[in-house]
Amino acid sequence: MHVMPGELLDNKGRGEAAWRWPAIHPEGRKFALIAAAVCVVTAFLAWETVAWPLAVLTLCILAFFRDPERVVPQDPACVIAPADGLVSLIQQVPPPRELQLADGTGAPALGSEPVTRISIFMSVFDVHINRAPISGTIRRVIYLPGKFLNADLDKASEENERQHILIERSDGVAIAFTQIAGLVARRIVPFVKTGDTMAVGQRVGLIRFGSRVDVYLPQGTDAKVVLGQKVVAGETVLAELGKQQLIEGIAQ
């Protein structure tokens, strides 16, 4: 079992929990610095009608790139949400074409049989740092250029700019997830490469300004979340490996 560095907390009350301001990811600091600098200049010139919107923009940028700590479940049977957001689709579909066949490197292939795909839509208000759903080794990272359709649409999985990441556990279980750029999102920023060893919940990348992440579960595994549910990256259990059951939810 991989354990991420940090304080250990459990369901018996061990550890110490306290609210803290979330960190700002370095990827966003430069944008916030630019907006803040222009804001200061316009304020110095007494252009208040420009300075105030720039001040708000600076705060919005800081909020978008926030990187809060997460308490990551360490049960090896659990598949953890790689993204914050809304479960917008749960479907039985074949894995991405790029991952169906072996590529000659020894990396696992997912085959063409349908599996459960969970789509998580991230609005501009969600945290956009993506995390590893399981512990293991990155076997494939495949970037594909494409369109910038609304990420909430089903066809975005095949037509939008996207990046597939395939992680294989030491026991051979492989899970793929796809970072998909959306209508507003225009850049996928990876933090990992093929061959990297990941702990569950470890940060793997981000997508700027609204997007979607698709998770492809292994055959014989159903979603443990329901359509319309809000999930939290690194914390929400999406599925338990080998478990198949109907779970119903009521919107109220």
Rank of each mutant, 00 (worst) to 15 (best):
F121M: 11
H128S: 05
L9D: 00
A18M: 13
V38I: 15
F44W: 14
V213R: 01
V192P: 09
A63M: 14
R169Y: 01
L62R: 09
K155T: 10
G111C: 09
Q202F: 05
T178S: 12
L153N: 05
R14W: 09
C60V: 14
V71H: 13
R212D: 02
L89Y: 12
F177E: 03
W19T: 08
R203T: 07
S112Q: 15
P5K: 02
L101F: 10
G85W: 08
A17S: 08
L101C: 03
Q202T: 01
L99N: 06
G249K: 10
R139H: 02
Q91F: 01
R208C: 07
C78E: 15
E98A: 15
W21D: 09
V115K: 13
D214W: 12
R208D: 03
Q179H: 03
L166A: 02
K224F: 07
Q92K: 15
R208G: 06
R212I: 04
P96I: 11
G85E: 05
I80H: 03
L45G: 00
L57C: 09
G205D: 06
V189S: 04
R70C: 10
G249F: 04
F209K: 06
V93G: 01
W47I: 00
S135F: 01
S211W: 08
D154Y: 06
A156L: 07
F191N: 00
P218H: 07
